[in-house]
């Protein structure tokens, strides 16, 4: 399983593997394909871990509660859809987009074993010494 779309601006906890938002490009020209379906996919994954913590954007507007979702292959944060819809399209790699398409934009059901694996991965993937990048 792979983490995707994590932005270090929102890493207040120990989990620090993302890159700052400023390192991602905004794609202004091209309209995003299948945006609605992608957002829907991102919001309907299986919950790996959910926090009692609200995520705010730079302008201090509330976005979403902090949740990590999975589809069995990828693990992504709840704010990913928000930034993707703001044209931060390179947050999502092409392979993930292909996976979504292959799943008919409907996140597959994740069994308990896979879910536990994802939770373990999350808990074990913090690193206070590594900053930005992998």
């Amino acid at each position: 399983m792979k983490f995707v779309g994590i932005i270090s601006d929102h890493e207040r906890g120990l989990f620090k593997i993302g890159q700052p938002l400023s390192e991602y490009q905004i794609q202004k020209e091209v309209p995003v394909e299948n945006l609605e379906q992608i957002i829907n996919y991102l919001e309907n994954g299986t919950v790996v871990v959910s926090f009692l913590h609200y995520v705010y954007d730079k302008m201090n507007n509330p976005i979403v509660p902090l949740i990590f979702y999975t589809d069995g292959t990828w693990i992504w944060p709840s704010y990913l859809g928000y930034y993707y819809s703001k044209q931060y399209t390179d947050l999502i790699p092409e392979e993930f987009l292909t996976d979504m398409k292959n799943n008919n934009y409907n996140p597959p059901t994740v069994d308990n074993e896979k879910l536990l694996e994802a939770q373990k991965l999350y808990v074990n993937t913090y690193d206070p010494n590594r900053k930005g990048g992998k």
Binding site: R12, G13, L14, V49, S50, F51, L52, H53, L66, Q119
Partner: peptide, 11 residues
């Protein structure tokens, strides 16, 4: 009052 010092998730 009991409260967490950091991010909290109830598993």
């Amino acid at each position: 009052v009991v409260a967490p010092t950091g991010e909290l998730s109830i598993m």
